[in-house]
Design a protein around this nucleic acid. Structure first.
Lengths: 222, 222
DNA sequence: TCCATAGTTATCGTATACGATTTCGTACTC
DNA sequence: GAGTACGAAATCGTATACGATAACTATGGA
C-alpha cells in the first residue's frame, strides 16, 4: 500500500530503462560513440536484459542510439550531415509549431518568455553557456506549450533530444550567434504580440533556427 | 551457403516480425481495433514472443499500434482528431519535402509523374479507388525520391503509414475531391517545371494536402 | 432481476538460459 | 616481420519458463 505510489510512478521496467538511458544520453553522461552494452546496463539498473533491449530499441527509433545487429548499440553522434538534416527539419517543425501556437499565446505567456529572454541576456554577459542553452529551451517551451497539434510538438522534442549531445556548442563555437538569437526572440515575441500574419510568424521562427545552422556552416566551411 | 542469401534477406526475427505485422496493418489485414495478441502472432510466425514484442513496440513508436501495459496491443484507429493532427503534420512535411526536392526533379521525373497522374484520371472514370490511392502515393514518391533530407522523407512516410488504415476513404467519402487532386498534381508539376519560387511550391504542396483535410472536415461537420 | 464478489482464464512482463555471431588475441607460417 | 588461421572471450538474439496483472465468468445475495 505504502509503495503503490512508487510503483505507479515507476512504470514498467522497460520504461524505467528507457527513461534512465535516455536521461543519461541527454544529460551527457553517455557521450556519442559510447558503447551501450545491454548486460552492463541491465546490471546497473538491476533488471534483466529483456526490458533494456526494448528501451534501446525505442531510443533507436528516436535516433538517439544506433543499434547494429550482432554488434551492439552506441550513442549516436551527430556528424555535420546529420546536424544539417536535423536542424533543417527542426526549422520546419518549429516554424509550424510557432505559427500554430501563436494565436493561443496570451499576455502572461509573453511576459514569462520575456523574463526568460532577459535572463538569457545576462547569461551572455556572465558567459554561462550551459544555463543559456537551458533557458533557450525554456523560452521555446513557453511558446509551444499551447501548441494545438501534439504530433508536431513531439517532432520538435525529438529534434531537441537529437541535438542534446551538442549541448551549448553553438554558443561556444559560433561567436555572436547567441546574441543574435536573443534579439530574434524579442522580435518573435513582438510579432506574436501584434497578432502578425501566421505566415510571417512561421518564417521568422524558421529563420531563427536556420540562421543558427547557417552560422554553423559558415564556421565549419573553412 | 545456399541459404545465406535468404538469411541476409530475412534479417533478425525481430525485424521480420516488424515487417510482417506492419504489412498486415498497412494492407488492411489487421484493421483498426484489431487485438494483437503477442503469443498468437508469435505462433503464426513460428517465433517466440520476445522478438514479436520488440516489433510491436517499434510499431507503437510509429503510431500504428497502441500498446497498453498489462492489457495488450491493438491496431490504432484514426479518430477525427488524430486524422486532423496527422493531416496537418503531413501538410507541413510534404510541403517542405516538395520544396526541397523541386530543384532536383528533372524532366524525366516530371514525365513519369505525368504518366502516373494520367492513369489516375482514368481511375476516376472507371471508379477504381484502390488503384487511385496507390497511384497517388506513386505520384508523390516520384516527387520525393530526390529529397535531400532523409529525416523529412521519413516523416512523410510515417504519415502515410498512419493514414493507411483509411485506405481510399477520401476518394469514396468526399466526392469531387479526387478530381480536384488530380488537377492540383498537374499544377504542381507545372510550378516545378517552371522553376517556381521554393516558397510558392511549398505553399501549393501544403494546400494540396490540407485541401483534402478541409474537404473531410466539411463533410463530417454535419 | 440485478449487482457484488470470488475464482478462473487469458495475457502480459521479466528472468534465466543457451545457441549464434562477432571480435579480439595468439600462435603459426611464409 | 607481416599476414593468416585458429581459438577464446564477449556480446548479441531468441526460446522457454514463470510470476503478475487484468479480463472474464459464475455464483450467491439483495
Amino acid at each position: 500500500m505504502t509503495e503503490t505510489a512508487v510503483e505507479i510512478k515507476a512504470g514498467s521496467k522497460s520504461e524505467q530503462a528507457y527513461a534512465a538511458v535516455k536521461a543519461r544520453i541527454v544529460e551527457g553522461t553517455y557521450t556519442p560513440g559510447y558503447r551501450l552494452v545491454l548486460a552492463k546496463i541491465a546490471e546497473d539498473l538491476g533488471f534483466s536484459v529483456v526490458p533494456v533491449r526494448e528501451a534501446i530499441r525505442r531510443l533507436e527509433a528516436e535516433g538517439l542510439v544506433k543499434f547494429e545487429r550482432n554488434v551492439g548499440a552506441t550513442v549516436s553522434g551527430i556528424d555535420p550531415t546529420e546536424y544539417l538534416y536535423t536542424m533543417q527539419t527542426l526549422s520546419i517543425v518549429e516554424g509550424a509549431a510557432t505559427a500554430l501556437s501563436a494565436p493561443l499565446i496570451g499576455g502572461a505567456d509573453i511576459a514569462r518568455a520575456r523574463a526568460v529572454n532577459q535572463e538569457m541576456r545576462e547569461c551572455l554577459e556572465h558567459f554561462d553557456p550551459v544555463r543559456f542553452t537551458q533557458l533557450n529551451q525554456d523560452f521555446h517551451s513557453v511558446l509551444f506549450e499551447h501548441c494545438p497539434n501534439p504530433h508536431i510538438l513531439d517532432l520538435v522534442h525529438r529534434g531537441w533530444n537529437r541535438l542534446a549531445s551538442l549541448r551549448s556548442s553553438t554558443f561556444r563555437f559560433v561567436p555572436g550567434r547567441a546574441k543574435e538569437s536573443v534579439e530574434e526572440h524579442e522580435a518573435l515575441l513582438q510579432l506574436i504580440e501584434n497578432n502578425a500574419d501566421a505566415d510571417e510568424i512561421e518564417k521568422a521562427a524558421r529563420r531563427h533556427r536556420s540562421a543558427t545552422l547557417d552560422a554553423y556552416l559558415a564556421q565549419t566551411k573553412h
